[in-house]
Design a binder for these strands. Structure first.
Length: 332
DNA sequence: AACGAACCCAACCGCCCAACG
DNA sequence: TCGTTGGGCGGTTGGGTTCGT
């Protein structure tokens, strides 16, 4: 059917907004609130179309917009959520308070995407791709300054860095499929299902994945590993998801929990040694870094360089042990 | 200092969909 | 049921800025 332009472009201003226009829009919204964007510019005395006003408000003028560089935690969250949701920028933005979909989209395209490509990771599938790999990032003296980093680069090469444990998703998928195929009543709860905590623990890497789900920054930090039985019921009670798709499961994963790595760098230390928060009960948590955004001179807890962030990404891979049977030398 | 290339990001474009009459 | 509208979304553009030579 097509759709007519949101407004008659003739006589309407386009391009960058002036401070005066911003002030008009702010004043109007403060007095009347937003909504009915089509009539808003006329009532506010703006020579703009409603859509332009809405975008200006949602992407720039909104008071809860967080400006400034993305923190490392935010960046990791974006990467992990992108692995689940794809280019659903608004869904990703919903999990990053103060960030807009446009901002995240831009940041992805200008920073993260390039970095993943440089690291040999397909930014679309999040799978390692040798044809994308910039080998200089592997033979980086900085990376090789610590053997663990070198190892994790190879482990990434070998494809053992799924943003979300594929075994978990595969397991959930098979569970759902089996429920469709099986006419027997579904178990009433997770404990009654065939999947036990023990079975989850037996999935390579899952124990770590489970232990790294932490509440969102504005929630109380969790220092103890999160156990399977602490998962939302819609995650663990597969009986209630008889008609759901695996995408629903993925959505559930991002609904209440955002996976953060168990390991990260102590940015305050000179040697960037790894900290195992699960064992040291460290007080560091993402909440700390988010709090800093409110200050007038934010002190982001973040890696200062692209390389440092790459190293940090690699460090997160330590949660996946390189199988002994995979001989790296074969790939040399 | 000058110039072009590369980068960044606000803003725009056009499609989609739910709500409504 | 269908057409219209408002609003949301992802993709793209273009101008300003930074970087490299």
């Amino acid at each position: 059917m097509g759709r007519a332009p949101c407004c008659d472009k003739s006589g309407l201003k386009r391009g960058p907004w002036t401070p005066e226009e911003d002030q008009k829009l702010l004043d109007y919204i403060h007095q009347h609130g937003y909504g009915n964007w089509r009539t808003l510019p006329k009532n506010a005395g703006l020579q703009r179309c409603g859509k332009s006003c809405r975008l200006r408000w949602t992407n720039y003028l909104r008071p809860d917009i967080k400006r400034g560089r993305f923190s490392f935690e935010e960046e990791e969250t974006i990467i992990q959520l992108h692995g689940i949701l794809g280019n659903k920028w608004s869904a990703i933005a919903a999990r990053l308070p103060g960030r807009t979909d446009n901002e995240i989209k831009n940041y992805w395209n200008t920073h993260i995407r390039k970095r993943l490509l440089r690291m040999g990771i397909d930014p679309v599938t999040h799978a390692p791709r040798l044809d994308l790999l910039d080998f200089s990032s592997i033979v980086n003296p900085c990376l090789f300054s610590n053997s663990a980093s070198a190892q994790v680069n190879f482990s990434r090469l070998l494809g053992v860095d799924p943003p979300i444990n594929p075994e978990l998703l595969r397991l959930a998928t098979s569970l759902l499929l089996s429920q469709h195929q099986n006419s027997n009543p579904a178990p009433q709860n997770f404990e009654e299902s065939q999947l036990t905590n023990q079975q989850f623990q037996e999935i390579p890497g899952f124990t770590t994945v489970a232990s790294t789900f932490v509440p969102f920054p504005n929630e109380a930090p969790v220092s103890q590993p999160k156990l399977v039985d602490e998962f939302p019921s819609n995650l663990t009670d597969f009986s209630s998801s008889s008609n759901s798709q695996i995408s629903d499961l993925a959505s559930s994963l991002t609904e209440d929990y955002v996976p953060f790595p168990t390991y990260d760098y102590d940015y305050r230390s000179s040697d960037q040694s790894l900290i195992d928060h699960s064992s040291t009960n460290s007080t560091f948590n993402s909440h700390d870094s988010y709090q800093s955004f409110g200050s007038s001179s934010p002190t982001y807890i973040t890696s200062s360089t692209e390389d440092e962030r790459e190293i940090s990404y690699c460090s997160n891979m330590l949660k996946f042990d390189l199988p002994d049977l995979l001989d790296v030398n074969e790939f040399m």
